[in-house]
């Protein structure tokens, strides 16, 4: 009856298995002396309370030989729950940070809103406000992720200097993308990151819109740091930027 366990259709392997069993398993009945030895050890352990009761040692993992199916059924719901929770968490983070597809048609509509509310500068105000609405979509802060314009107003109105001097992270990264894009169009053989370029095209709303988008973005973010004319010029002259310590790392991309 053990023949089938050999899992070998080869007759000779079966015969070899049979020979192994015949040779290695003891022919005579179990030695009574040895058996008594083992039973005595059993008795001693039982009487010492090792088999049951409070003195019994804990079952370790290597002592648990219950059928795996029983344990796995218990594990599956747990694994599914963990997967679900982590999936939802990551998914909502991705939505909050704007990594998931972004409804771009929103951008032009919402652009003027914060621009009106920004009282500081005259000509680059639209441009300045644009990155902050970008941040609204792209930053990880949950308080700013609401699509209404109210939070944008709150961030730009009470502290205009802050919101203008510290360019939003997303705007910064898009700005860097822009510079990379401009460099790429400048030097045809330059290394380009296809994914980054695609992101830029997506953000601009089309391939043709990229130059205009970039011009606004790079011009706008420089406006607070420099004077207005310089910022205007910065839209074209991207080589000035590496000298600005804050943006140098992003520029290196």
């Amino acid at each position: 009856m053990r023949r089938g366990r050999a899992r070998d259709d080869d007759h000779e392997s079966d015969a070899a298995a049979e020979a192994l069993r015949a040779a290695l398993r003891p022919n005579q009945s179990v030695s009574e002396n040895e058996a008594q030895h083992a039973v005595a050890a059993f008795r001693a352990a039982r009487d010492a309370g090792l088999h049951a009761g409070s003195g019994a040692p804990r079952t370790r993992r290597r002592d648990d030989w219950r059928p795996a199916t029983g344990r796995r059924i218990g594990l599956w719901p747990k694994a599914a729950l963990i997967a679900l929770v982590s999936g939802m968490t990551l998914g909502s983070v991705a939505i909050a940070t704007g990594k998931l597809p972004n409804p771009l048609p929103d951008l032009p509509e919402r652009r003027p809103e914060p621009g009106v509310s920004t009282p500081v500068s005259t000509s680059p105000e639209d441009v300045t406000a644009f990155p902050s609405s970008e941040e609204d979509n792209a930053s990880a802060s949950p308080s700013q992720s609401a699509p209404s314009t109210a939070p944008v107003r709150e961030t730009s109105v009470p502290g205009p200097t802050e919101s203008e001097q510290v360019p939003p992270g997303a705007a910064k990264s898009h700005e860097a993308l822009c510079r990379a894009y401009e460099q790429r169009t400048g030097h045809a053989g330059g290394a380009s990151d296809a994914t980054a370029l695609r992101r830029l095209v997506e953000a601009a709303g089309g391939k043709e819109a990229v130059p205009g988008y970039c011009e606004k973005l790079t011009g706008g973010s420089k406006a607070p740091d420099k004077t207005v004319p310089e910022a205007r010029a910065g839209g074209q002259d991207h080589r000035r930027n590496p000298s600005e310590g804050k943006e140098a790392p992003a520029d290196r991309r």
Binding site: A38, A41, A45, L50, A56, P57, T59, D63, W65, P67
Partner: peptide
């Protein structure tokens, strides 16, 4: 034989830890 004797001492001592059926006991 000697090694088996040692093994049975351990089996007898740790029997209370074991969980499982007949096939599991063979494996353990």
């Amino acid at each position: 034989e000697d090694v088996a004797s040692d093994a049975w001492l351990e089996i007898a001592r740790d029997l209370g830890r074991f969980r499982g059926d007949g096939a599991g006991f063979r494996g353990w």
